[in-house]
Amino acid sequence: MSAEAHATTLGMDHRKLAMWTFLGSEFLFFGAFVSAYLLYLDTTAGGPGVEIFDIPFTSVSSFVLLMSSLTMVLAHSAHSRGDLRRMRLWVLATAGQGMVFLGGQVFEFTVFYREGLELGGSPFASSFFVLTGFHGIHVFVGILLLLSLYTLSLTGKIKPNQDLKTEMIGLYWHFVDIIWVIIFTVVYLIPEIAVLD
């Protein structure tokens, strides 16, 4: 056999290519929710609208999620140097920040709910809760992945030379973060400023 048969055609790992392929399609997923939300910005059926948002609070949780991307990339960096101990530390830090973000979202939903913003109240409420809810589910899945990574690295199933696994989970995690970068601006800040004007 000739030598080039050993490598994959494009010279990259299947799993990384698959992860990127999947992430590419996720834009179509979140894009549809964001579109529905933008269409229904003013369709509040007499209920609360965007003025209900607590921008300082959401800013803090957005910041936490953004910084979790830093710890995630540091985890991968440590793993690619074979330093599993530090990798575990950063992975836990990332998962912890994810939990803070999720906790913030649960708190935010509860407050909104008490103030009269209910899933079935208006198309605006439906599109807000379902969009941010699905992002929350993505964060939750990410936390599960991170905790699994942590556990499996303790049991020896994930070895120092397998940094691709941390990298893949990292790609997913950064993607979820990037989606929140868009949501924070398009869903929270811009409508809020447009209303204030």
Binding site: M12, K16, L17, W20, L23, G24, F27, L28, F30, G31
Partner: peptide
């Protein structure tokens, strides 16, 4: 190719 996948999906969306 990874950039193409990501920005391709983003552009289409």
């Amino acid at each position: 190719i990874f950039s193409r996948m990501m920005y391709g999906g983003l552009t289409l969306a």
